[in-house]
Amino acid sequence: MQKQKELLKVTDLKQYFPIKGGILGRTVNHVKAVDGVSFTVYEGETLSIVGESGCGKSTTGRAILRLDEPTSGEVEFDGKNLLAYNKKEMNKIRKNMQIIFQDPYASINPRHTVRQILTEAMEIQNSVPKNERNDRVIELMETVGLGPHQADRLPHEFSGGQRQRIGIARALSVDPQLIIADEAVSALDVSIQAQVINLLKKLQREFKLTYLFISHDLGVVRHISDRIIVMYLGKIVEIADKKSLFENTMHPYTTALLSAIPSTDVEKKKERIILKGDVPSPIDPPKGCRFHTRCPFATDLCRTETPELRTADGMLEGHMAACHYMEDIKAGKHQPTTV
């Protein structure tokens, strides 16, 4: 793999949300939504973060953009430390990093026409001269597959898929380098979802975009990503290039997650691993490995010692997982401890 430019580097990112309580409304505890997450996004790639609700994937995206101020850690974008920026500088840099949300309708002003929505971002960033903005709007709409005649319509006149195209056009309007897509296709019907995924891939080719793609859908993630991060309860459990993750799965959680997804392949009878119980609360996450309460392979070591992300023998460079027993499980030497 050739050495690529690091566009976004996240180091030991933590996001704790305080819980108020007691007679005086003091902070009594924290929701540890993201608890020490580090990764790098290279220019031009699609890095996905997958995980179930409450794993911290969306919080990570929001913390990077400082939509919620992170508790600690470092976020470097293009070599610059974002957390050191003041509000004004931050707004300026946001031109280079845009976000697309799950529900496009909730993130756009319902009383603004498409034209207004698209020019607004250009105005704020002052990235396009005034007299060129109209042409730019038409160009953007054509880019995302909307007709120029629709420029003066209101968001409610569009279908869900078209609204997501508006959201994408708005993100593109300021020529960003990085787009964070937070469950951007999750709310769409499958036939529309495919259209939007194809569009995102096309835009990436055309504009050399970098994606941080946050999703719970491993099918979509497999199709769109170069590399994938799997999160569980605020921590990364596995990070790998796509091929390694799906074909050389190391972490028992990733294995369980993959096996839980219903497959349309009716011929292949696969072995299902059904995890017991629910994801524990991020307020008091389990000690040691956070997955030990549901992991079929857990031992006392897992209950006391937090495993670090590491590359074991037989794993490609850049493939890391956080499990004490991953080699032994893989080799069949470590059997499930619970039935």
């Binding site: 279908s159 898929g161 078209q162 019907d189 499958v190 036939s191 529309i192 979802q193 495919a194 259209q195 995924i197 194809n198 891939k201 096309k202 491993l218 099918g219 979509v220 993630v221 497999r222 199709h223 769109i224 799906f246 993959l258 997804i261 497959s263 349309t264 392949d265």
Partner: peptide, 25 residues
Amino acid sequence: VGLMKSIPQHDQDIEGDLAVIRGSV
């Protein structure tokens, strides 16, 4: 058929673009 082909699967790779159903309901 269109529905089936347009869903990206977690257990198989699809080269290039996904098949789509044009337009909307």
